[in-house]
């Protein structure tokens, strides 16, 4: 039983990364209709940025947790203004290709300057060691990641459902033309929302740095799974992304425990099953427009 609970925790911790990353992808997809392929690259830059901050400027984990995602978020908003927005009126495929190109450029730049190897980064002193959770001891840092992800996801959910900004973004996500006809300047919101999605990717990256290998390719492996999470949750659905993220982490962990032979493909089996059952994803709405 204890063992099972511990594995549940493991699932939720790896689900935390899925949830945060999928949330950012969902928000961006919602307002732009664009699948941001570069999401994994920004996750990588979050982790790499933390290492750079420490190595070059002596900036530790806590300040990096604030600064690195912020810098990446601003960069994301800028990218939207100078590149993504120019292709917005064309087929979404163009922007998908653009973000794919951005991924390659960002990855290769990091490789060019720092090589393909991974960089050392460890958890801050106060988060090293384990914490007792009653039935078992659990690594402090992993527990911190779970709490941080839950706090961020809840805060985003509250902001989405309880504030005017959230209302405007929801409306602009759902029916941009109707929102515009009601006097809402939808375009004004795109860059900040894009930047916010990137902020989330960067934040996940910083959180990953102390517990995962910090290397230029760390995002490209993960992003495929996160795409599956977003599809399972329903493209553009904010709550769907978060719930599917945690659920998938959990399913993966328990799958590894009870059916290790399936571990490699489990995510995609779940995705296929969900799509057969509900083509728009668990929380997605069927397309109403013709």
């Amino acid at each position: 039983m204890t063992n099972f609970l511990e594995q549940v925790f493991n699932g939720l911790v790896s689900g935390s990364f899925y949830a945060l990353l999928a949330l950012g992808l969902a928000v961006i997809f919602g307002i732009l209709g664009v699948v941001n392929f570069a999401h994994g690259a920004f996750y990588m830059l979050g982790a790499f940025g933390s290492w750079l901050a420490l190595d070059k400027a002596g900036i530790g984990f806590w300040p990096a947790l604030l600064l690195v995602p912020l810098a990446l978020g601003l960069f994301g908003a800028l990218l939207e203004r100078i590149a993504v927005s120019r292709l917005a009126s064309l087929d979404p495929l163009y922007n998908f290709l653009l973000t794919f190109g951005v991924t390659l450029v960002l990855q290769d730049l990091v490789v060019r300057f720092y090589g393909v190897g991974s960089q050392p980064y460890s958890a801050p002193k106060e988060l090293q060691g384990t914490i007792s959770l009653g039935l078992f001891d659990y690594p402090k840092y992993q527990a911190f990641v779970l709490v941080a992800a839950l706090v961020v996801c809840s805060a985003v959910w509250l902001a989405f459902t309880r504030t005017r900004v959230g209302m405007v973004v929801r409306a602009a996500t759902e029916r941009p033309d109707v929102a515009r006809a009601l006097g809402v300047d939808v375009r004004r919101w795109i860059a900040p929302v894009f930047g916010f999605g990137i902020w989330l990717a960067g934040l996940s990256g910083v959180l990953a740095a102390p517990m995962r290998s910090v290397n230029p390719l760390m995002g490209s492996d993960l992003v495929i799974t996160v795409f599956a999470v977003v599809v399972i949750g329903g493209l553009g659905s904010v709550s769907g992304a978060v719930i599917a993220g945690f659920a998938l982490g959990l399913i993966e962990a328990l799958g590894e425990l009870y059916a290790p032979f399936l571990a490699q493909v489990l995510v995609f089996v779940v995705m296929a099953a969900v799509l057969l059952w509900r083509p728009a994803g668990l929380f997605g709405r069927q397309e109403v427009r013709a």
């Binding site: 063992n3 511990e6 594995q7 493991n10 699932g11 911790v13 790896s14 990364f17 992993q142 995962r212 760390m218 492996d221 993960l222 993966e252 962990a253 590894e256 425990l257």
Partner: peptide, 9 residues
């Protein structure tokens, strides 16, 4: 990415 399940096993 995450091997914690195996480590705990």
């Amino acid at each position: 990415q995450d091997f914690s399940t195996y480590l705990l096993k």
